[in-house]
Write a protein that binds this DNA or RNA. Structure first.
Length: 415
RNA sequence: GUGGGCGUAGCUCAAUCGGUAGAGCACUGGACUGUGGCUCCAGUGGUUGAGGGUUCGAUCCCCUUCGCUCACCCCA
């Protein structure tokens, strides 16, 4: 057979994994500090969990889901996103009966059958947050703040926060009517895709990237002007809180989101210079979703971070690790002593790498590549004298150390 | 699903007009009998993505196919 992975499914090799762990740790730290708890949801759900919540007419449901029948003929889908399963779990386990908001976060792979390109894969990773049970704008601001705080802690540059409001279901349907009236005249000017969108989901015409459509819809009425009083107040409050926090944001009335469940506040974080797929995180409010899923009327808001996209923003030169030791040895007595010492050092919490190779030279080369601060050399001669050689790889200084006290000496140097 | 670009050593890439494949890096060893980075030398490593066609002869030209990649659609 040929060793070959599936299209759009990537290995994450050891040379890259430090960045992943860095992002995961920072996210955990920020979310836990905000009172959020991790929830682990399955990779698969009944297909209806996604088709009903995301929307039957969306691209995700229409053409991007990995769906199959299991052995008993049930329709199963590999999760294309995390919000629907989390809401399903929230309803199934009655989390609405606990203190609200229920603060949850998750991380793991999602699956969408799309043509891969820069920043897009068929198996891709998201870190997501959901806060359920509170409809106050204060929560919107806190959730956005958390996301922004995470990116700040990671020192990511050239990010832009864009926000919008889609209103509640009432004001949205009023706006859609208004929008269709406006677009009706322009229809001949629009691209074929947009002509289809006009019927299926007119909001998405706003999202079209073609210059011609952009130009033709330049003076389109904004959705923010159509918001009802309470939706407008909600959005004003969110903006006010973000202002208090000095979090810079831009209003983009063309953020419409491709999933049907979004209401009111929506937002995206864009990274410039990432290629076409440049949204590193996105989210919004979904006030009707819990009820759609069979739970009590419950508001909610959340976001998802595109892990691969954030990873690609992290510098390669990152970060230094604490000094550690590489143990080289020649001959059986030397090997035996060196493996014993290795175990003791690791027990004491000190990183110790064991050397392999027939010559001291080859072991030294490997020690150099490993980035070790110190090398301990134990050969036949050292065993005879009872003195090991401890070499500092940066300064090239060497000390003879008493092998009987080697452990204590090394702990002092490295601990 | 649609369109463009590209497939030669583990990686990055050469190969003139069509003449049977080469360099750098990496890896292993040596120069330096037990001391890394620098230098020099040597070795390992190839179904030129696959299949077919044209030709005395194809990495090169033609067809088919597979893969990778970027972009569209859409999305994190």
């Amino acid at each position: 057979m040929e060793a070959k992975g599936i299209k759009g499914f990537k290995d994450i090799l050891p040379s890259e994994i430090k960045k992943w762990q860095y992002l995961e740790r920072k996210a955990e730290e920020v979310f836990e500090n905000a009172g959020y708890s991790e929830i682990r949801i399955p990779l698969m759900e009944f297909t209806e969990v996604f088709s009903r919540s995301i929307g039957e007419d969306t691209d995700i449901v229409e053409k991007e889901m990995y769906t199959f029948q299991d052995k008993s003929g049930r329709n199963i889908t590999l999760r294309p996103e995390g919000t629907a399963p989390v809401v399903r779990a929230y309803v199934e386990h009655g989390l609405y009966a606990g203190p609200q908001p229920a603060r949850l976060y998750y991380l793991g792979p999602m699956f969408r059958y799309e043509r891969p390109q820069a920043g897009r894969y068929r198996q891709f990773y998201q870190i997501g947050v959901e806060a359920l049970g509170i409809d106050e704008p204060l929560l919107d601001a806190e959730v956005v703040m958390m996301l922004w705080h995470l990116f700040e802690k990671m020192k990511l540059n050239d990010l832009e926060l864009q926000i919008n409001s889609l209103g509640c279901r009432n004001c949205r349907s009023i706006y859609i009517k208004k929008l269709k009236e406006y677009l009706g005249d322009k229809l001949p000017l629009l691209c074929p895709d947009c002509k289809k969108r006009y019927d299926v989901n007119p909001l998405r015409v706003l999202d079209c990237k073609r210059d011609q459509c952009r130009e033709s819809t330049k003076d389109v009425p904004g959705i923010l002007d159509s918001l009802c009083k309470s939706c407008k107040e909600h959005f004003e409050d969110v903006k006010g809180y973000l202002g208090e926090l000095s979090i810079p944001f831009k209003i983009n009335q063309r953020i419409v989101r491709g999933l049907d469940y979004y209401t009111k506040t929506t937002f995206e974080v864009i990274a410039k210079g990432l290629g076409a797929q440049n949204a590193v995180a996105a989210g919004g409010r979904y006030d009707g979703l819990v009820e759609d899923m069979g739970g009590p009327p419950t508001p909610g808001i959340g976001f998802a971070i595109g892990v691969e996209r954030v990873i690609s923003l992290i510098q390669d030169t990152f970060p230094e690790q604490k000094p550690f030791i590489y143990l080289t040895s020649l001959g059986n007595p030397g090997h035996a002593l060196s493996i014993k010492l290795t175990r003791q050092l690791r027990d004491a919490g000190i990183k110790a790498e064991l050397g392999y190779g027939n010559s001291l030279k080859s072991q030294m080369k490997k020690a150099d590549k490993s980035g070790a601060k110190f090398v301990l050399i134990i050969g036949d001669e050292e065993i005879r004298k009872g003195l090991g050689i401890l070499r500092d790889m940066d300064t090239k200084a060497q000390d003879n150390i008493d092998l009987k006290q080697a452990f204590e000496i090394l702990v002092k140097r490295l601990g």
